[in-house]
């Protein structure tokens, strides 16, 4: 660094008027087979980046990002699930020692210790050795944490039927409600079916009725006697109302299919 009097500046600024050489420094005495960062190594890095980008764009093109139906706070049948990288926390809170009276343990103590330890890891693992074998405790703890996170995420995700879930929560195009609320069968639908099959027949606790393959007679039978997980006697009314209900479901389903 030049200092003192006799220095020349550009105007009244602090920038030296004397040009330094633009020739790169000589690193030939640097040990090992080194390589200049610019442009040699950067080119390799960018080639790797370009390959990565192509892969990433393929992923994006192959899997359009999902969008579910507009948030409906009254939808009691919806089972919330966080994004995958929070699943391990979500699953942790299902364990007895991490919920109920022990909730503090689940939301503060365990994650707090884990992430706190991660933050101050250099001070906990402060020996001089860098090889994993030289610090078995730190490496062991990390492997344990890693395995538990993967295990928690896996158990959480394994419970979920992702395809049905995506199918049931498909967005309904705005302003295209197919439900004719003046239909004589709508009242019966609202009373008996809506809580499980949704206000737009899009499904919820029960399957979607839009695009149903059942005939009118079958629907009338299911409404009274149930099917699969659906209990019997969901519909309690006159035969005429039952017929209107089945008409309503079939007509709405057809209207939605158009």
């Amino acid at each position: 660094m030049h200092k003192g009097k006799g220095m020349k500046f550009v105007g009244d600024s602090r920038i030296s008027a004397e040009k330094t050489s633009k020739i790169p420094k000589d690193y030939s005495e640097y040990p090992g087979r080194t390589e200049a960062f610019w442009p040699n190594f950067l080119l390799k890095e960018w080639l790797a980046g370009a390959v990565f980008l192509v892969g990433f764009l393929c992923l994006v093109l192959a899997h359009p990002s999902p969008l579910e139906g507009m948030a409906d706070p009254t939808d009691a049948a919806y089972i919330p699930l966080p994004d995958w990288y929070f699943l391990f926390l979500y699953e942790l809170l299902k364990y007895q020692f991490a919920s109920g009276d022990w909730i503090i343990l689940g939301i503060l103590v365990i994650p707090g210790i884990a992430f706190g330890a991660l933050l101050i890891a250099p001070f906990l693992d402060n020996g001089p050795g860098r090889r994993p074998r030289q610090r078995p405790v730190a490496v062991g703890m990390m492997l344990l944490a890693l395995v538990s996170c993967i295990w928690l995420t896996y158990t959480s995700a394994a419970h979920v039927d992702w395809e049905t879930r995506a199918e049931q929560n498909k967005p309904i195009p705005p302003g295209e409600s197919v439900v004719d609320q003046d239909h004589p069968g709508f009242a019966a639908y609202e009373n008996s079916c809506l809580s499980c099959h949704g206000g737009e027949l899009e499904g919820g606790a029960g399957p979607a009725l839009v695009g149903t393959e059942h005939t009118k007679e079958e629907i009338m039978d299911i409404a009274v006697n149930g099917i699969g997980a659906m209990p019997a006697d969901q519909f309690q009314g006159t035969d005429e109302e039952l017929e209107q209900l089945a008409d309503f479901i079939i007509e709405t389903s057809e209207a939605a299919g158009e």
């Binding site: 442009p39 040699n40 080119l43 960018w46 980008l53 192509v54």
Partner: peptide
């Protein structure tokens, strides 16, 4: 050689920028 690397670098950078 350095120039060649610089041109390639610009090309790869341009490819990434375009893709993005």
């Amino acid at each position: 050689r350095r120039q060649f690397l610089n041109y390639t670098l610009t090309g790869v950078g341009g490819f990434m920028a375009a893709g993005l």
